[in-house]
């Protein structure tokens, strides 16, 4: 079945949102990566010190998750126009899930590294589990969409 103009317009709107979010988010996390490398280069104690291992781990996780999720946003934005109209409901749900995950997970890791308790990250880390669940939901919804389309 051919998509209606309204559905095409909606797909474009969602795709644009994810592409825009993904590329800007990627820019932010690449910048964060450069910042972390600079902290390494100058051996900044508050980042490189033995006591800062939790911070180092949390910020590294924030950087890696943020970067990876940015790429997922871009890939999702490129995938949407390829999907058929049958699965529009599913992708309408997948979009906020993926956006939520992209916000919560890196932010949770980052905040968890600002203030922390010895071996435990700060309470910002509590943003990460809901972010992880949203990511899992989003990915499953996209996978289901694609599976249906292939059938």
């Amino acid at each position: 079945m051919v998509k209606k103009p309204v559905e095409i317009a909606e797909d474009i709107r969602i795709a644009q949102r994810h592409l825009l979010f993904g590329w800007w988010s990627l820019a932010i996390f690449v910048a964060l990566g450069i910042t972390l490398e600079t902290l390494h280069a100058f051996k900044i104690v508050s980042y490189m010190g033995v006591d800062a291992e939790t911070r180092r781990l949390m910020w590294t996780l924030a950087h890696s998750h943020g970067t990876l999720l940015s790429i997922i946003q871009i890939v999702f934005g490129l995938t949407i126009p390829k999907l058929s109209e049958q699965t529009s409901n599913l992708r309408a749900w997948a979009s906020p899930c993926l956006l939520g995950a992209s916000l919560l997970m890196p932010l949770g890791f980052f905040l968890g590294g600002i203030f922390y308790y010895s071996g435990d990250p700060g309470i910002g880390i509590f943003l990460v589990p809901p972010g992880g669940i949203l990511l899992l939901l989003g990915v499953i919804l996209v996978a289901v969409n694609i599976t249906r389309d292939f059938r």
């Binding site: 010190g49 033995v50 006591d51 291992e53 939790t54 010895s118 071996g119 435990d120």
Partner: peptide, 10 residues
């Protein structure tokens, strides 16, 4: 060490 890295190292 698993949780108290700084204390362990010192």
């Amino acid at each position: 060490r698993q949780c108290h890295v700084g204390h362990y190292e010192s």
